[in-house]
Design a protein around this nucleic acid. Sequence first.
DNA 1: CGCATGGCCCTTA
DNA 2: TTAAGGGCCATGC
Length: 250
Amino acid sequence: MTHNASDPLLAGLAGLTVDAPAGLLDRVAARWVRVPGPIGEVSVAFTDQGVAYVHEGDDGFAGAFRERFARPLLPAARPPAGLVPALRTGRAATLTLDLRGLTPFQRDVLLAARDIPRGEVRPYAWIAARIGRPTAVRAVGSALAGNPVPLLIPCHRVIRSDGAPGQYVFGAEAKERLLTAEGVDLDRLRGLAHDRVFYLASDTTGVVCFPTCHNARRITPAHRHGFRTLPQARAAGYRPCRSCRPAAAA
DNA sequence: CGCATGGCCCTTA
DNA sequence: TTAAGGGCCATGC
């Protein structure tokens, strides 16, 4: 089961660095910092491979980390380059992530979620189709629930197909706050869903998008057409947007 | 149209 | 090994 790293071990490793090659300790232990995030402070752990863990606030951080990673945790002098801006923008472009210890399925899910742009959302079912597991929708939710690096991999941008925000590792309320701050109009999505509109098409471009796609936002009302399903939009002559990829399929 | 209900698939205990 | 349950989805009143 879980193998709690004891303090003696940690102290021993720290002592080793006196005579050991520089960097040995950091191949074994993780470092941690506390930095500002978009919805308050976060505690972040990182290894020589990249950022491994993001935890809301400070409470229970160290315990949760050891429970999950079973490796020593030491304070860092400074955060990894690019971490703070990545947390602010929700885009870990230049930041390397340490995603070891995840199953291939979990990794596929997280990597698919990583590419959802700020200000946009996609359904859980879209991720499932995207990774070639169209029926594993519920398992996608479970994988996102275990996202070790929330905010950096923006799992808060994955919502339910019926337009509701759905659950979140930091709580549903935090999910709504984050999305709203990023410019997603959740009330509008709920309103569209109420009318059974899940796709928006433009009769000037002939393209059909998810409602939050940056291309969909520019459709003028006179040329906008809503659809309940993608097949219906296709039947009406629209092709799926290459940016938001409502057709999902690999 | 809102709600309940089976179904599905991956992970963990 | 197996079973239970989870950030869901599509149906059927």
